[in-house]
Simulated assay, not measured.
Amino acid sequence: MTTEVTVVIGAGSMGQAIARRIGVGQMILLADINEDNAKAAATALTGAGYRTSTARVDVSSQDSVRELADTAAGLGAVMHVVQTAGLSPAQASPEAIIAVDLVGTAHVLDEFARVIAPGGSGIVISSQAGHMIPALPADQNEALARTPAGELAALPFLQPDTITNSGIAYAVAKRANTLRTQAAAVTWGDRGARVNSLSPGIIMTPLALDELNSPAGALYQEMIKASASGRVGTPDEIGTVAAFLMGRDGSFITGSDLLIDGGVIASIAAGRFQVQMG
């Protein structure tokens, strides 16, 4: 009997929540740039009855992602790929966010398109931030969707004179994630697999805590209060939605992005909250 494999890239609380939903009976390969994080996640999941393996990956490196994809394929049939790796505006420079959140996601989509099994599925964790910026020109959308991953960071509109701070870098990277996922749905479909993106709002994770404790924390609190739900989300809520998109009930959904933000973008559209990315 062939082993089925779930790959979780970014071994934090959101990735673990998704793994718990979709990884039952499979080998869960947990990959992170910090292998200690991957091992800690593996210990938690193994203690709950899951089979796990760990690896180190730097998503900003195509070679590193290719090695991870080959490792996953060596374990068995790659049925699920979960891309959660990323940096937040409070954590990194614009250049680092472009390298990890934007280019890194492109590497994951490209390299796992080679090994995803028929009937498999993937999910990319994007962000509500990608929905906050104005529409981009059509040529920029096309460039973000289809430029070879190794050339993305050199695009003229991603240079420091345009991407002037980490908040803008993050929003553009997350917009790119949804465009890139839609484009990748075609090549994944050639292998009989599907891929979608999720755009979470403020989900209570260590990354979100960094943002809430940053100088922008007061703005985030205002955003939460103005949203339709009036609260933060939980990793388990993301896990539930991801499991739907990746499972049998979501089998006709591919190349789509689902906003799961408690109504933050709706409150912005209604004029109840204003956010400035610059």
Rank of each mutant, 00 (worst) to 15 (best):
E4S: 01
V5P: 01
G15M: 01
R21G: 02
G25C: 03
M27T: 12
L29A: 04
I33V: 13
D36Y: 01
K39S: 01
G47V: 07
T54A: 02
T54S: 13
V57I: 13
D58I: 05
S61D: 10
R66M: 00
T71H: 12
A73N: 04
M79T: 10
M79D: 06
V82Q: 07
Q91R: 10
Q91S: 15
S93H: 13
P94I: 14
A96H: 15
D101T: 13
A106F: 03
A113K: 14
A113Y: 14
G120V: 02
V124H: 07
M132C: 12
M132I: 12
I133D: 02
P137A: 08
N141C: 15
E142R: 07
A145D: 14
A149F: 09
L152V: 15
L152C: 07
L152P: 05
A153V: 10
A153K: 13
L158K: 02
D161G: 00
D161A: 05
T164Q: 14
I168R: 06
A173H: 09
A173L: 02
L179F: 11
Q182N: 13
A183C: 01
A185P: 12
W188E: 12
A193N: 11
R194I: 15
G201Y: 02
G201N: 12
I202L: 14
E211Q: 14
L212D: 03
N213E: 14
M223P: 01
K225P: 00
S227R: 05
A228T: 00
G233Q: 05
G233R: 08
P235L: 02
D236F: 00
G239I: 03
F244L: 10
L245D: 05
M246W: 04
M246G: 09
G247N: 13
G255N: 04
L258G: 06
L259H: 07
D261L: 14
A270R: 00
F273K: 10
V275T: 12
